[in-house]
Amino acid sequence: MTDRLQGKTILVTGAASGIGRTVATAFVAEGARVVFSDRDAAGAEGAAADAGGGAVGVHLDVTDEESVARAFAAVADRGWRLDVVVANAGVQLFGQDAPVADLDLDVWQRTLAVNLTGTFLTLKHAVRALSDRGGSIVVTGSPTGLNGEGRDFTAYSSSKAGVHGLVRTVAAAYADRGIRVNTVVPGYTETPLVTTISQDAASRAAIVGRTPLGRPGTPQDVVGVMVHLASDESSFSTGAIFRVDGGMTSL
């Protein structure tokens, strides 16, 4: 590690496991002071303790604006000023999400509540926290929001397409305040979120077969891009999509 984030304070949502935990831990190793946030408060606290470096864990349910506001206020109450926010929390309801004619309204609403409304609420409070001096917001997107990769996941694909549009809008609206907003698009990444695929040999082979680099992604694969976007190295990047998907969306 290179201490590229020395002196920065960063909040990561969905940081109790998966990509969020891996990225937040890497930020600590790069010298940042990191807030691991998750609706699983115990998981967030445990991940922060494991990371060391003064990291803290806080409860943050992205579907509840009061919870989001309290988490951001807790950072300020410590006397910390955020430089970077990573909006990473998300759900994918395997076995429930479906083609549109077969999709239950409840599944649609629960998916959008976390993935799209939750990202909206995170960005809303992130912009407020960063508006006095600028900073970087990084959002986790998905190939399903870019192409037909998620044709059987109507709610998830729609929520991620909405997230990509939200990022472009927020980036344009707040560029004059020095706030950069970018999307990172991991490909099929083996985390607890996708055990339904990773534990099914045929499903796993099918999705890996559509990835030109020929393997599934790991949370560590997105660390380099996330660190770059959190650092001052990305000071001229905003409203962009950074694909870390093994070439999946290049076809």
Rank of each mutant, 00 (worst) to 15 (best):
residue 148 G to C: 06
residue 124 K to W: 12
residue 97 D to R: 08
residue 71 A to P: 02
residue 70 R to I: 02
residue 111 T to S: 14
residue 135 G to H: 07
residue 147 N to T: 07
residue 137 I to C: 07
residue 148 G to M: 11
residue 120 F to C: 09
residue 145 G to W: 04
residue 83 D to K: 01
residue 125 H to T: 05
residue 141 G to T: 12
residue 119 T to I: 14
residue 149 E to W: 14
residue 134 G to D: 11
residue 90 G to I: 00
residue 91 V to A: 09
residue 88 N to W: 01
residue 68 V to W: 00
residue 148 G to K: 11
residue 80 W to R: 05
residue 68 V to Q: 01
residue 112 L to I: 08
residue 106 D to R: 06
residue 119 T to A: 15
residue 131 S to A: 15
residue 68 V to L: 03
residue 82 L to Y: 09
residue 104 D to G: 01
residue 147 N to G: 04
residue 72 F to T: 09
residue 98 A to L: 02
residue 67 S to K: 09
residue 97 D to M: 11
residue 129 A to T: 08
residue 90 G to E: 03
residue 77 D to W: 02
residue 63 T to Y: 08
residue 70 R to T: 12
residue 71 A to R: 00
residue 80 W to Q: 09
residue 89 A to P: 01
residue 104 D to P: 01
residue 119 T to N: 14
residue 76 A to D: 12
residue 128 R to I: 01
residue 130 L to Y: 13
residue 80 W to N: 02
residue 77 D to G: 12
residue 126 A to E: 04
residue 135 G to C: 08
residue 70 R to G: 02
residue 66 E to N: 13
residue 88 N to M: 04
residue 136 S to M: 03
residue 143 P to F: 08
residue 71 A to E: 00
residue 140 T to N: 13
residue 94 F to I: 05
residue 66 E to S: 15
residue 113 A to H: 01
residue 98 A to H: 08
residue 141 G to P: 03
residue 86 V to H: 08
residue 86 V to E: 01
residue 133 R to M: 06
residue 137 I to M: 11
residue 89 A to S: 13
residue 148 G to I: 11
residue 65 E to R: 12
residue 144 T to Y: 02
residue 120 F to R: 10
residue 110 R to E: 10
residue 134 G to N: 12
residue 112 L to M: 06
residue 102 D to G: 07
residue 141 G to K: 02
residue 111 T to D: 06
residue 103 L to Y: 06
residue 103 L to G: 05
residue 106 D to Y: 00
residue 104 D to Q: 06
residue 79 G to S: 05
residue 79 G to E: 03
residue 132 D to F: 07
residue 62 V to N: 05
